[in-house]
């Protein structure tokens, strides 16, 4: 850990998929311990790409990545990163590949070199802490959407990461499950970055919202979530509240 509690330090990261315009353009990001950052941005603004670069799943074309004070470049550096940073994927079906829930949750701990019994204990404990006790022998593909999401969260938390990256965790969740997810996140003693389009959710679950636009982070413009009550026909669906990006017309 950096003495200032700096966990993720990205400098001038550029990335583009071949044959398409640049996704990330000289992106800088500082993420400190204890932060709960909400990340917003339009579709295709590179939020998922950013997460994949932090995890070493994609290689930036230029720029520097420093995780917990150490520069990371090679696959073997990222193997260490993946023990400390957990990524929750957008689609839970990508994350849950084992036939049963217990096996899937135990997969991470087993990879970290835990014994079978330790891994099972960790898996059971994690499931229980998320209110999923009794799910051990359920078949993963038969879970409902909300259950899948919570079990995927369990598979990530079972590795006891220091940081979580959550990629649109509320997609496809009903209100009750979303509420449950918020409670779980609030109860975690862990720093996280949360990508979502859902203002209400970000307001509940994060301490600050950062915007991404044109492949970079809009730095001077960190927004403090606030409450305001109003009524209009869009109800609680995603809509902006004077939070549109500078220079853009509402």
């Amino acid at each position: 850990m950096d003495e200032n509690g700096l966990i993720i330090n990205l400098e001038d990261i550029c990335f583009g998929y071949p044959g398409r315009p640049t996704v990330l353009d000289k992106l800088n990001l500082l993420f400190y311990e204890g932060e709960r950052m909400g990340l917003m941005g339009s579709n295709g603004s590179g939020k998922t790409t950013l997460f994949h670069i932090i995890m070493g799943l994609l290689k930036p074309s230029s720029g520097r990545i420093e995780i917990m004070g150490r520069p990371v470049k090679e696959e073997k550096d990222f193997r260490e990163v993946r023990k400390k940073i957990g990524l929750l994927f957008q689609d839970a079906d990508d994350q849950l590949f084992s036939p049963t829930v217990l096996e899937d949750v135990a997969f991470g701990p087993l990879n970290l070199g835990k014994s079978q019994d330790e891994a099972k204990t960790i898996a059971r404990r994690t499931l229980e802490s998320l209110g999923l006790a009794g799910f051990e022998d359920r078949i993963t593909y038969k879970l409902s959407g909300g259950e899948k999401r919570l079990v995927s969260l369990a598979t990530v938390l079972a590795m006891e990461p220091e940081v979580l990256l959550l990629d649109e965790p509320t997609t496809g969740l009903d209100e009750a499950t979303e509420k449950r997810l918020i409670d779980i996140l609030k109860g975690l003693d862990i720093s996280y970055i949360l990508v979502s389009h859902d203002m209400d959710f970000l307001k509940e679950a994060t301490t600050g919202i950062t915007c991404m636009s044109n492949g970079t982070i809009v730095l001077d413009d960190e927004r403090i979530p606030h409450t305001h009550v109003h009524v209009h026909k869009h109800g609680r669906y995603v809509h902006d509240h004077g939070l549109s990006l500078p220079g853009k017309k509402r």
């Binding site: 993946r82 990508d94 590949f97 891994a119 099972k120």
Partner: peptide, 22 residues
């Protein structure tokens, strides 16, 4: 595409080519 994403998710959880049976 799915296979690629599943592989990525497995890598994130420390997959090194071994599946362990419980």
């Amino acid at each position: 595409d799915r296979a690629e994403r599943v592989r990525n998710a497995m890598l994130c959880r420390g997959f090194r080519g071994n599946l362990y049976s419980l």
